[in-house]
Amino acid sequence: MAIDLILNGKAVALDAPPAGRLIDALRDHAGLTSVKEGCGEGECGSCTVLVDGEPVCSCLTLAGQVAGAKVETVEGLARGPDRPLVDAVVEAAGVQCGYCTPGVILAAKALLDAHETPTRNDIKTALSGNLCRCTGYHRLIDAVDKAATARRRLAGDAG
């Protein structure tokens, strides 16, 4: 039984066990290996994906739960309006070992989609479900701050 969903903007029928974990469905059945397993119990946030725009731990989500939903991973951000966020994380030196990075970017995207002008504290709160052991978070917070500014500028240009 396939699970129908919109995965990174495309309608797909994912041939994965609905009672299995979403992380396994995405990694093993859709080849989306940016979704990282760091703890398997919803504490580290490395497996964060967006389900209908909300960040969720894909290790705590059943694959069947996303039937009919819109699911996003960083593979879907390489081109398109969220590219500046990815670039900001790279340019602000927010990447070290890189294992937490995709999850952090998705948590940040959820924040920026919901808040045009987040404060530094909003950013910290939004990233607080994503553990990073390398960067001490400062450059990640800077990156999200910069991405927010870049988005506003883009929105301003468009308007």
Partner: peptide, 21 residues
């Protein structure tokens, strides 16, 4: 200076392949 890290792009876009991948 502080150029762009050689490995940051692949890591941030999810194309870096770790052992489990």
């Amino acid at each position: 200076k502080s150029p762009r890290r050689v490995d940051a792009g692949a890591k941030a876009s999810g194309t870096a392949r770790y052992t489990a991948d």
